[in-house]
Design a protein around this nucleic acid. Sequence first.
DNA 1: TTTAAATAGGATAGTAAGTATCATTTATAA
DNA 2: TTATAAATGATACTTACTATCCTATTTAAA
Lengths: 143, 143
Amino acid sequence: MNTPPSMVRLTTQRQILLEELSKVNTHPTACELYKMVQKRLPRIGLGTVYRNLEIMVDSGIILKLELGGEQKRFDATTEPHYHVRCTVCGKMDDVTLQVQEEITKKAAEKTSYKIIGHLLEFTGECPDCQKAQAAKTKEADTA
Amino acid sequence: MNTPPSMVRLTTQRQILLEELSKVNTHPTACELYKMVQKRLPRIGLGTVYRNLEIMVDSGIILKLELGGEQKRFDATTEPHYHVRCTVCGKMDDVTLQVQEEITKKAAEKTSYKIIGHLLEFTGECPDCQKAQAAKTKEADTA
DNA sequence: TTTAAATAGGATAGTAAGTATCATTTATAA
DNA sequence: TTATAAATGATACTTACTATCCTATTTAAA
Ligand SMILES: [Zn+2]
Ligand SMILES: [Zn+2]
Ligand SMILES: [Zn+2]
Ligand SMILES: [Zn+2]
């Protein structure tokens, strides 16, 4: 604790980025956020979105989810919580399951690593994709 | 169960790829495996490595680890198990912790997704990076 | 209030992991 | 042996993300 954390300026871009992220519970990707923010700031650059998301992650204002899947996703809810990912469409949602603090202790006993925390992601099929799948199966049966 | 799974030909490249992956417990990336295999097959292409790893993942011979981190890693141990990732150097190791089957049931009660499974990854600092960090701190103190 | 330094933005070029394409080679089957 | 299919290796391409650079804006000093 020697140097104070550098002050993060709350610019228009950052404010709107944070507002848009806070509006949704879809855990959008940087690209999705770019499109959302563009409606309010048509001249914003994609680089600015990436840069500011990273800055906000570093200062603890938002979370970066880099679990399974190709793209990183962002979350305005900073309290530790778990997620489900649809293996069909890639959509992510929160799972309101108590965070298992004790599991890190158990893991620490089993390894020579200094354990900091854990990432838990559930995989499954979202309601939409379940419906689509059901419709498809029905269609195949009647054909 | 209508069409039988397409037979995967065990080519030299695939065999050596699997052998090299089975030799180590470091959960190598595609690029690392490429370098390992190149020593025995100098003319192999990087595309072949990627292609065959994907084929072996699809046929269940190996596992693809795509949780946190930038690159996908591969694992010849197909039984479900957990991993630790070093947040400094990216190295991954197994954690011989009992797989929590019941956690997927708990999650299933909390969401409208059809839960298939879960991915759990611990984050921490590997012994090597701990040592390096300690040496660095000491150096800074004496300076 | 003017001026200088620091910070941030937007445009654009670059990076790197991974994927697609395609001609050639290898394996399998008729 | 020949036809068919599958796999390889070289290469081009895609894409998520990062770095660079110049301009604009904000902040602080003079
Ligand atoms: Zn879905
Ligand atoms: Zn969330
Ligand atoms: Zn390490
Ligand atoms: Zn493993």
